[in-house]
Simulated scan of single mutants.
Amino acid sequence: MNRLISRLQDEARIVCGVSANLAKQYGWSLLWTRVVTIGLVVTNPSISLAAYFIVAVVMSQKTSRF
């Protein structure tokens, strides 16, 4: 369990870096941002995954412009 928590708190990108970027941008806890994201994906996978990857595309376009 400690290994899982340390992995979730790691700044490294797990999938597209959406949770890490959101946590950094808004000053949220990275661990809880990832826990909420995982919870949303488990409860409603189709809409959550679609929204996740849309945010990933928007974030990548936003960073590539600068």
Rank of each mutant, 00 (worst) to 15 (best):
M1P: 08
N2H: 11
N2F: 13
N2A: 10
R3K: 14
R3F: 11
S6W: 12
S6Q: 14
R7V: 08
L8Q: 02
L8N: 01
D10V: 01
D10K: 03
E11I: 06
A12E: 12
V15C: 06
V15W: 11
G17P: 04
G17I: 02
V18A: 01
S19W: 10
S19E: 15
A20H: 06
A20N: 06
N21S: 11
N21V: 06
L22G: 06
A23I: 01
K24C: 06
K24A: 15
Q25R: 15
Q25N: 11
Q25E: 15
Q25M: 08
Q25P: 02
Q25L: 12
Y26F: 15
G27F: 06
W28M: 03
S29C: 04
S29M: 01
S29A: 03
L30K: 04
L31S: 06
L31H: 10
W32H: 04
W32N: 03
T33Y: 12
T33I: 06
R34W: 07
R34Q: 03
V35I: 14
T37I: 05
G39R: 00
G39C: 03
L40F: 14
L40M: 13
V41H: 10
V41G: 12
V42C: 12
V42Q: 07
N44V: 08
P45D: 04
P45A: 10
S46M: 13
S46H: 12
S48V: 01
L49M: 09
L49P: 01
A50S: 14
A51H: 02
Y52F: 14
Y52Q: 00
V55G: 02
A56T: 00
A56C: 03
A56S: 03
V57R: 12
V57G: 06
V57Q: 10
V58M: 00
M59Q: 15
M59A: 07
S60K: 07
Q61F: 10
Q61D: 07
T63I: 02
S64Q: 05
S64L: 09
S64I: 02
S64M: 04
R65N: 05
R65T: 09
